[in-house]
Write a protein that binds this DNA or RNA. Sequence first.
DNA 1: ACCTATTGATTACTATTACTCATGGATAGC
DNA 2: GCTATCCATGAGTAATAGTAATCAATAGGT
Lengths: 294, 294
Amino acid sequence: MLERTHLAIIQAVDNHGTLTAAAKQLCVTQSALSHTIRKLEDKLGTAVWLREGRNIRLTQAGLYLLNLANRLLPQLSHAESKLKQMAHGERGTLRIGMECHPCYQWLLRVVSPFLAGWPDVDVDVKQKFQFGGVGALLGYEIDLLVTPDPFYAAGLCFEPVFDYEQVLVVPRKSELAGRQYVKAESLRDHILLTYPVAPDRLDIYTQFLNPAGVVPKRHKTIETTDIMLQMVASGRGVAALPRWLAEEYCKKLPISAVQLGRAGIAKQIFLGARTSDNNIEYLRAFIALAKKQL
Amino acid sequence: MLERTHLAIIQAVDNHGTLTAAAKQLCVTQSALSHTIRKLEDKLGTAVWLREGRNIRLTQAGLYLLNLANRLLPQLSHAESKLKQMAHGERGTLRIGMECHPCYQWLLRVVSPFLAGWPDVDVDVKQKFQFGGVGALLGYEIDLLVTPDPFYAAGLCFEPVFDYEQVLVVPRKSELAGRQYVKAESLRDHILLTYPVAPDRLDIYTQFLNPAGVVPKRHKTIETTDIMLQMVASGRGVAALPRWLAEEYCKKLPISAVQLGRAGIAKQIFLGARTSDNNIEYLRAFIALAKKQL
DNA sequence: ACCTATTGATTACTATTACTCATGGATAGC
DNA sequence: GCTATCCATGAGTAATAGTAATCAATAGGT
């Protein structure tokens, strides 16, 4: 039988490169590991590691197991901590995934009253996902997903939590600042600042630049909103952000928000969850709170 | 630690309703289950079942664990059956390395029936190797190497899979087209088109031009066979290719194949594998298929 | 080309653990 | 109220996973 220990060993050996180091992490002797993996391979009938001199490397079967381990072990340990919380009378941890960089500020405004209303529920926010936000949701890596792209898969449900307009943020003294709206062509001689996300996931490209066949003068990626807008303020480029976020910063920095195109770009943010989690009270409460926040 | 057994027990008890029935399914005594679940509850610090008279029912925590079990156990057992198949060589990925550009067409004719015969084995073809094809084979980057240059290293074995003649492909209206064979000197005023490979790995150099001390007028490299022969057809140069491949294209393009030198250049293609992989059924099957294809 | 330190493998022994057996108390259904 | 069946428990045993000590192989420095 393939046991949890085996997966843990495979993961540890992969992390450390050697049996000895892995043994130290797992608080057993090297000998024990050697025995265990030997027995595992005997049971499976196939080699999991290739012994090459004094090093070992995973076989195809081993790689498959490593993949399995990386998938299952976090779920097991999360389950354990959740059960521990249950044992202590706490409600649990709400793990929120973010696929919408600028929504962070909005999220904070929802999390704050939530934490107040549910003192025994913790909140954790994650932003990087190997298989995308939906994958993380389906893989029980997160419990809630904040995203502009709902993906209606079986077992998931998405609810819109707010509408907003995507606008262009420009330096206040820029020639673009006063206009009623900017055309895509105007960006030809501007530097575009965005979060480090693939262009096909950026609305400024998919809904504005690409349809017009326009490429900005340059494209720079920046992690944080604050720095990004500092850059805009100092005339180093322009950025596309939600209007509510832009207007907040307009108070603090010499920048202006301008409508994108004649029609503007309308966006919606969704909150996704597993339908099987529908009975979790605090999760429903969070969604309700998010809708009210609007 | 939450173990696989625990999840299995939770699932079995839920299925059968009683400990006794679950014990029977799991091939242990009722007593053993009783002990195990008791210890689990002690470790977790929370009850998993509610004892109601002589029946037991899952608690909130138990329901959570049941959910986890239903999710994880199938993955584990699926992994086991997949590994069993891997052990029997029924399933896996055959990673083929190519060191012989024109052989691609030949390979396709072998891969096609192979995929049909081994529905659970995937095929992946790689063409670039940091340390050469043999290095990739020894480094477990690939499992099979298609090459014109066998390299008899320890732990590797090469088998010839087909013979062919390397010929010069020229425009049909070229003065070289009608000849019985071309001399190396004739290439002095022709442009030579080859795949982008180091000259010391090109037979046209090592076996034909270099021995005669001849350098072609120019040397251009082209990635794809189709384009290369389009170039030949339009009089932009000549190329060296296997006769079987050249003759296929002669039907479609105004080009001709001419023997290289008085004796011609005989070549052989080998299939290399690690001897340690000799027990992998589908790998042996592929080699057998390749030989039959001849 | 040789040491040396470190790797994984192996053997023999030990401690732990998981299990069985036997039995007890509780309860649902006839 | 009787009986069959449920789960719990304690004591003893078998299986297993662990350790310590040692060996053989090898990567890497000198």
